[in-house]
Design a protein around this nucleic acid. Structure first.
Lengths: 135, 135
DNA sequence: CGCTTTGTTATATATATAGTATAACAGATA
DNA sequence: TATCTGTTATACTATATATATAACAAAGCG
C-alpha cells in the first residue's frame, strides 16, 4: 500500500487514511472494483489498530466511495462514484471559508490562492506515478 | 457583535469564534487598533464560557492577529498584519489537499472548484455590509 | 460439512480535546 | 482604593481518538 501515516500529526489516523484512499481514487491509483486489504491486514501493515482502519472504511462506505461485502471484503465503488452534489458543495464551502478568510487577512492575493489550489488539483488528478515510473 | 455560534456544529466553539474574527479582519469590519470586547463580556454576550473566548483570543494573538494588554484589553493588530509566509502556505496546502482530492474524486471540474473559491474570496474581501446598507 | 477469512459487534481502557464552573491573582487605571 | 483587565489554577463532565481482546455471523473453499 501507498499509505503513509504521521503519528505525530494532529490529524486523526482514520482521517489521514480515509483522505489518502480518496486521493488514490481521485488519481486513478485505485480503480473501480479494485479490492482493498482486509481491515486486519491493512492494520497490521500500518501498525495500527483494526478498528481505526475500519472507521476509515466505514466513513468511505457511508460516502459511497467503497462497497463492503461479507467474504469478498472491501472494494472501490465499481458503479458510479459519488457526485459533487449540493450537500458536498455546502460542506466544501464551509471548509474553504475560513481558509479563504485567513488568506485575505494575510494579504494573499486571489491569484496566488487560486493558483495554489489549481496546482493541487492537477497534481492529484494527474500524479507523477500515473505517467509511468521510468523506461 | 456580529458573531454567530452554532452549538450543534462539530466545529469547536473557540474555532468558530476565531474564524469569524479573522473574517472580520479580512473584510475590514474589524479595523487595526479596534478594541474587542473583554473575555467576560463577549462570553456573556455569546452565552459561553470565559475560557472558550480566551482560547480563541490566545490563538489569534499567537498568530499575530490580535494584541493583548493588561487593562486596555484586546485590540486588533494595529501594526502590520501577519503575512502569508511559507509556514502558512504549507498549512494551507495541507488543509486544501483533501478537499481538492475529494472534489476530483467526485468529478467536480477544476473550473467549478476554482470558481467556488474565487467567489468565497471576493465575498469575504468585499462583503455586502462594506458597500453601505441602504441609505 | 467443517475450516478459514471476512466484516461486525461488544467491552474495556487510556489519553486528549472541548467546554463549563469557580475562584483567586496581578497589573493597569480612573 | 476600587474596579476592570487578562491570567492562572483547579475540578469536573462529555466526547473523540486509539488501542486491546474477544466473540459473533456470513460467505466462500476444500
Amino acid at each position: 500500500m501507498f499509505i503513509e501515516l504521521d503519528l505525530q500529526s494532529e490529524v486523526p489516523l482514520y482521517k489521514q487514511l480515509a483522505d489518502q484512499l480518496v486521493e488514490g481514487i481521485a488519481s486513478g491509483t485505485l480503480s473501480p472494483g479494485q479490492p482493498l486489504p482486509s481491515v486486519r491486514t491493512l492494520a497490521a501493515d500500518l501498525g495500527i489498530n483494526l478498528h481505526t482502519v475500519n472507521k476509515a472504511y466505514q466513513a468511505l462506505k457511508q460516502d459511497g466511495f467503497l462497497e463492503i461485502h461479507r467474504k469478498q471484503g472491501v472494494i472501490v465503488q465499481p458503479g458510479s462514484q459519488p457526485s459533487a452534489d449540493e450537500a458536498f458543495r455546502q460542506r466544501l464551502q464551509r471548509d474553504l471559508r475560513p481558509l479563504a478568510a485567513e488568506s485575505v487577512a494575510r494579504g494573499m492575493s486571489e491569484a496566488d490562492l487560486l493558483e495554489l489550489l489549481r496546482t493541487l488539483y492537477r497534481q492529484i488528478q494527474n500524479p507523477p506515478s500515473k505517467g509511468g515510473t521510468s523506461s
